[in-house]
Design a protein around this nucleic acid. Structure first.
Lengths: 196, 196
DNA sequence: CCGTATTCTCTACAAGTATAGAAAATAAAG
DNA sequence: CTTTATTTTCTATACTTGTAGAGAATACGG
């Protein structure tokens, strides 16, 4: 009888529009009106799919996290040890335009999370998962003799995670055209340090 | 004849109130009204000292940077090499309540800097200065034999800087009571890696 | 072509924002 | 105490925001 839309798919469309607005204009410009416009709708059309703005933003942030994790899963599939660790880090580092955009989105997320325990929780859970994966890869690499340092794996994983997070900031605040921040060299350098 | 106030000092008072609001309630709550209230004034009293809100925020962020740099200068005075590098990092790491509050302030700053070239510039200039200092300490340490790794100093300084920035995020998003994030162990671990 | 359930547009509204500026309060000199 | 330059309060304004909901538009089954 009437027009039928796939609600889940529509939600993804709206999240995508939100993503583009934040990447292009910043989170301050991500108003309901602007997002609706970007998605090709009028102001009130979002409500049936996201009752409030916070619902939309939380869903959007979660989606970016999920997409990153899916990419990581693809890239590390069938890998182990140092190779897996390298693939993991390369996938998270903001080395191309798309991932620099992700950095421009995750920083506003962090800012919101500072005063929103629910969002802080989302971040911590993801990071705990990343840390566990990195510790696993480090243990494998140590077993294979590629990691010989006396520094324990938990500390190494923490260093590497913080390095990855810091890289997001460097990339998001770099001037427009600049692409080379030496992040690849930093990663390779760190992996070199492990084998001492 | 009339009441005379020291404008520079008043500006610092207002910046201090701003700082407290952001640390306690988040940047979203840092409205002109709230800041004026915190400083003990009425809404319009800020204008003679800061014509616009952006002036106030830019000045406030700059002040936090300056204060951190002063603390760094104190702590590294008369030191060199690995000792200076350690002191530098310990001073930046969010290891106590005051520096965790600074992390809660610098993250909103980063978020604003994403779409504000002037603020991004402030950040980059400070970071460039920090990197130069770290490279200097690394060179000294290498000369003294405390750094022997084949990884070059620029990459090492970059790693360490990103580690420090990432630590700000971890600290700002940690749950209320949690103080121990293993940051000290990460720092000592990194310094250990240098001597391989 | 018609009816109908769904979807979308549009207008409205209440709340909160930065900012401007007139008026009142203030404190020190004479 | 009076005067006066400065400081502060207070009210007003223009604007933006999220949200609500009535009505129009839509597309499909009959």
């Amino acid at each position: 009888m009437p027009k039928i839309v796939n609600h889940d798919q529509r939600r993804l469309e709206l999240v995508d529009a939100t993503w583009r607005i934040i990447a292009r204009l910043g989170i301050e410009s991500a108003t309901m009106r602007e997002i609706a416009l970007e998605a090709g709708f009028a102001n009130g059309a979002l409500k049936p799919y996201f009752p409030t703005k916070d619902d939309l933003l939380t869903f959007a942030f979660g989606h970016v996290f999920n997409r990153t994790n899916e990419r990581i899963a693809e890239v590390t599939a069938g890998q182990a040890g140092l190779a897996a660790l390298r693939a993991f880090c390369v996938e998270v580092l903001p080395l191309d335009e798309e991932r620099i955009n992700e950095a421009r989105i995750v920083i506003p997320f962090w800012q919101k999370a500072i005063n929103d325990p629910g969002k802080a929780r989302i971040h911590r859970d993801s990071m705990e998962q990343w840390l566990a994966a990195m510790r696993q890869y480090l243990a494998e690499a140590r077993h294979a003799g590629a990691v010989t340092t006396a520094v324990n794996d938990a500390a190494l994983a923490g260093q590497l995670l913080n390095l990855l997070l810091g890289a997001q900031i460097a990339a998001a605040l770099a001037p427009e055209g600049q692409v080379e921040l030496g992040l690849n060299e930093q990663l390779e350098g760190f992996l070199t340090l492990l084998g001492c």
